Amino acid sequence: PVKPELPYFKHHTLEQFNKYLLSFERHCAKVFPDDREQWRTLLISKLSKDIKATLPPEAEYDWSYEKVLCNIQDYLKLTDDQVESSPMSEFWRLPKLATETPKRFSVNLLRAFKEAHPQKEFDYEYDNILIERFVDAQSEDTRNHIKENTLISKSTGQRIAYEAYVKLAEQFENNKRKRQQNYEKMQPTQQPKYYPNQFKIFRTIRI
């Protein structure tokens, strides 16, 4: 039997949108598991004209799926007087603090993910949404390191677990921290410059 097409989002509240996201992301995870650009394009195509009008033209080709998602949620939050923070929006908005290690952030993110997706509490290990959300929150050099070290495995179709991504990020950040500390130790202490004759010159001028 032919599966019914994904419905359009015709509501106007954040709560309804987050409910819609559950079925939308489930659909995309099956149809476009490794192509987030398709997620973005499909989501925009399923929006009402009112909501679509709040997005700039470049959103359709230049923005990430997550950025489109957050902008829609921001708009709906502004238009919904009775909105409360939902587990789904908490997951998408959870920030990685500058002082937070990748491992610590991964624990907080996983907790938020399980609250937003209770049906995946024991089935999160290879979840693309969770993994991509974790990777996107890292610094650029950490993201590049993860990408370089997972490229071959991905190209051969090998699945990589969430914990493996966390370990890659943690190791890279630790090494970066050690390099920075070693660099700082090697820097000579700046001594004030002293010229032997500077005080003589000063005295001569005074005289």
Rank of each mutant, 00 (worst) to 15 (best):
116 A>V: 05
121 E>S: 14
88 M>E: 09
120 K>D: 02
132 E>I: 07
131 I>W: 00
102 P>D: 04
114 K>M: 13
135 V>W: 01
86 S>T: 13
138 Q>M: 15
89 S>E: 10
132 E>Q: 13
78 L>W: 11
113 F>D: 05
89 S>I: 10
78 L>G: 14
71 N>Q: 11
68 V>W: 02
65 Y>N: 10
136 D>E: 14
74 D>E: 11
86 S>F: 03
98 A>W: 15
80 D>C: 06
129 I>N: 00
115 E>L: 15
125 E>G: 00
126 Y>I: 02
69 L>W: 08
113 F>T: 08
76 L>H: 09
125 E>W: 00
85 S>W: 13
99 T>P: 01
107 V>S: 14
76 L>K: 05
94 L>I: 15
111 R>K: 14
79 T>W: 02
90 E>W: 03
122 F>V: 02
112 A>H: 12
140 E>I: 10
78 L>F: 13
104 R>C: 06
103 K>P: 01
139 S>T: 10
109 L>R: 01
78 L>Q: 14
90 E>Q: 15
96 K>P: 02
99 T>N: 13
132 E>K: 06
117 H>M: 09
93 R>Y: 07
123 D>S: 08
139 S>P: 04
121 E>F: 04
78 L>C: 07
129 I>S: 03
130 L>Y: 00
122 F>S: 10
101 T>Y: 04
65 Y>W: 12
107 V>C: 05
87 P>K: 08
126 Y>W: 02
99 T>E: 03
127 D>I: 00
92 W>L: 05
105 F>C: 00
105 F>T: 00
122 F>D: 05
110 L>V: 05
70 C>K: 11
141 D>P: 05
93 R>E: 11
80 D>H: 11
98 A>S: 15
95 P>E: 01
114 K>Y: 09
128 N>L: 02
90 E>I: 07
108 N>S: 12
141 D>A: 06
95 P>Y: 02
137 A>V: 05
102 P>T: 04
114 K>G: 04
116 A>L: 08
89 S>D: 12
116 A>G: 09
118 P>C: 12
80 D>P: 05
84 E>F: 13
119 Q>D: 15
133 R>V: 02
83 V>M: 06
124 Y>A: 10
84 E>D: 09
114 K>E: 11
100 E>L: 06
126 Y>N: 01
91 F>M: 12
132 E>C: 13
73 Q>W: 01
138 Q>P: 08
121 E>K: 14
116 A>S: 15
